[in-house]
């Protein structure tokens, strides 16, 4: 399903992933636009997108607290049980772009922190595109079954603790450690990775945004233009 993921990144995306407004930067600090272009030119060949997905049928939802899934897995979280109470299926997803971009950004930090940060922005834009592509693909498949998808929910959102969510997603997907692994503090390696789940059901409404459930939504400078509910605002 995800053997080829088209990743087209524009300088504007890189700048936005760095927390900047591209239109203002273009006028005020055009040199940063050049750095964004350079990160795209040099970074594109370093991207190694990989996706691990598993979709499980929902068997029942208990008292708005536990979601019982096929195979015996239980997703125990009141927030998710409320949000996904219309779900017939849930897709568990891990996406990564590999570690080469982070390695490049780290190596550049002492030499040129501005270029290092541009590479970081490029990496964030890339993982956001991969994640959005996966969500859209699952959404399209759901549409063919006359179903819709929820917004993506990621561990670390306001009412889904990081450790609880990462443990659940990783136990269900059990990804090859060569693709992605968890540190003891539940950070993913490669760092430019994202984990999430999507509810699939007949009556999901797209009136929510991922940012609505982010702990830093009040102060965040990384909000993307939310053209669709699958847009991310990663601070990877």
């Amino acid at each position: 399903m995800f053997e080829f993921i088209p990743i087209t990144i524009t300088p504007e995306m890189v700048l936005r992933s760095q927390g900047a407004d591209p239109a203002i930067i273009e006028k005020r600090s055009p040199i940063l636009l050049e750095y964004a272009k350079r990160a795209i030119e040099e970074g594109s060949a370093l991207l190694k997108p990989q996706v691990v997905v598993r979709t499980l049928m929902v068997q029942k939802i208990d008292h708005h607290k536990c979601i019982h899934l096929e195979g015996g897995s239980i997703l125990e979280n009141t927030f998710l049980a409320q949000q996904l109470n219309l779900a017939q299926k849930i897709s568990f997803i891990i996406c990564t772009i590999g570690d080469a971009i982070d390695e490049k950004a780290s190596a550049l930090y002492r030499l040129d922190p501005v270029l290092s940060f541009a590479f970081d922005g490029f990496g964030i834009a890339a993982i956001d595109i991969v994640a959005a592509h996966v969500c859209e693909s699952i959404g399209e498949k759901a549409n063919k079954e006359s179903l819709r998808t929820s917004i993506p929910y990621s561990p670390g959102m306001v009412r889904w603790p990081l450790e609880e969510g990462q443990n659940k997603i990783f136990s269900i997907l059990n990804p090859e450690p060569t693709i992605v692994r968890l540190t003891p503090s539940f950070q993913m390696i490669p760092k430019k990775s994202t984990s999430m789940l999507l509810g699939i059901g007949a009556n999901f409404k797209h009136n929510q945004k991922t940012c609505d459930f982010c702990a830093t939504r009040e102060t965040c400078r990384f909000k993307p233009p939310q053209k669709n509910p699958f847009s991310f605002g990663s601070k990877v």
Binding site: A20, I24, S29, L32, D112, P113, V114, F117
Partner: peptide, 14 residues
């Protein structure tokens, strides 16, 4: 004040 962005702060710091 939200006028400058992170990369502008970085380029100034450099």
């Amino acid at each position: 004040e939200g006028e400058y962005f992170v990369p502008e702060m970085l380029v100034a710091a450099r």
